[in-house]
Simulated scan of single mutants.
Amino acid sequence: MPELAEVARIVHFLRQHLVGKTLSKVQAQHDDVIYGKVGTSAAEFQKAMQGKKVIGAGQQGKYFWITMSSPPHAVMHFGMAGWLKIKDTDTYYYRSDKPADQEWPPKYWKFLLETSDEPKSEAAFVDARRLGRIRLVECPADEIRNHTPLKENGPDPVADKDIVTAAWLGEKLKSKKVPIKALLLDQANISGIGNWMGDEILYHAKIHPEQYSNTLSNDQVKELNTAMHYVCSTAIDVLADSEKFPEHWLFKHRWSKGKKNQSSTLPNGDKITFLTVGGRTSAVVPAVQKKTGAVSKDVNEQPANGTAANSKRKRGVKMEEDSEFDEKPDVKSRGSKKASASAVKEDEEDEEKPSVGRRRSTRSRK
């Protein structure tokens, strides 16, 4: 699932190609899930956008929006596999090598936008799995975050860095008794953090993902806050292009899970193991991420070669099966695997269980 950094990538391209331009042509194909589940329709979307000028684009975590010259405004969410394409522009943090993906209009489009201003831009929202959402919000442009669905979500660690401080985070952690990884993934607490970003943040903070949030020391809270801002801002600065992530990041070395005779190891030799937290596969570096307080349960760790260190059923712990979705895309950043029904609620929109899949890039690997 596109996370905070990947969504920031799209906001960048929206500002570059659509903001300041008038939409001369808008087409929308009705989908009773993508539009209908949030109370609108393709016809309403088309009418609301047609002929208006795009005056801005913004983001709160995994949600993003385009504000128009007059209300309503479009607020969107990619779900598991949605994306926004701009004709003749590489907006991808992944890219398929299928020739059909170069076609225009693209397959599985939900709306098409075309500007009248030169140079003309064409954009398309695509979603094969129909887990994304497109809605209209009736309000002044500068009040969009005060309305559903944004008001129900927590602050964005980049857009709201003045809110997401060590003091604020400490109070949030103390108010709940849940595994720290689950707390980070819950969008009601903090917007935008998904599976890979959560793992990266906890690795840099040297915190075990299963440790209860209310057991972290003041020093650990400070480390967590620092790590959160570091990971989020760094990933956004490079527009989620993982080729440009620092070489020592966990992200660069975690993708051997489930492959025989391969192990995931950091450049310094520390091994990466895998466990399940809140229904998600979590990458952990045991040499760094020690359990310093109570944890929600004993967890079986799984080496990167797929051979369980202990039986999957030992102590009643269920470990996630390997899947191709846990493999690294060829070049750029990836989406996270959908949680099971019992897992932490990631956000209000993820109501369906998608099938497992992965994304590839056409850019050659180095």
Score class of each variant (00 low, 15 high):
T22E: 12
I66D: 01
S96N: 06
T292N: 09
D160Q: 05
A124H: 01
A308Q: 08
E122Q: 13
D241R: 02
N225D: 12
A167W: 01
D219S: 09
V221E: 02
K37M: 15
S24I: 12
Q302H: 06
G36W: 14
S213M: 02
F111I: 01
K328G: 15
S282E: 05
H147A: 04
S336Q: 12
A304D: 13
D322K: 12
E346S: 08
V295A: 01
D101L: 11
Y203Q: 04
E171P: 03
L216I: 03
A81D: 09
G198D: 04
Q29T: 07
S333W: 07
K345Q: 13
I34E: 08
K87P: 05
V54G: 07
T148E: 10
A42L: 11
V344Q: 05
W255D: 07
Y93M: 07
E103N: 13
E351I: 14
P303G: 09
G51C: 12
A309N: 13
W168V: 10
N225H: 13
A283P: 03
Q102I: 05
Q16K: 15
D97L: 11
A42C: 10
R358H: 14
A182Q: 03
E44L: 11
K98I: 10
D298I: 10
D350Y: 06
V11S: 09
A205P: 02
R280G: 00
S364D: 08
S323Y: 13
V288N: 10
A182H: 00
E348W: 09
S323N: 14
V26R: 03
K62H: 09
D156T: 11
L216W: 01
E243I: 03
I193T: 01
T165Y: 05
E138P: 06
L131R: 07
R334M: 10
K337T: 10
P246T: 00
D101C: 09
E118S: 08
K98W: 12
A100V: 13
G278Y: 01
L266P: 02
L136Y: 04
S336A: 15
Y212P: 00
R95I: 08
K260A: 15
H204C: 02
A308W: 05
E223Y: 03
K345W: 03
F45S: 03
V26W: 11
P354A: 14
G198F: 00
A100E: 12
L14P: 14
V356H: 12
R133P: 10
P179N: 02
L216Y: 04
P209D: 01
A308G: 07
G51A: 12
I134E: 06
G61D: 06
K290G: 04
W104T: 05
D241H: 01
T265M: 05
K47N: 14
K176C: 04
K151I: 10
G51F: 08
E243T: 03
D97W: 11
P140F: 07
D142Y: 01
I144R: 05
P2I: 04
R15V: 07
T148Y: 13
H147L: 03
T22I: 15
V164T: 06
A235S: 08
K345T: 14
T89K: 15
T307L: 13
D298H: 08
K222V: 14
E247C: 00
K37A: 13
K259G: 02
T307K: 15
Q102W: 11
G36A: 14
G316N: 10
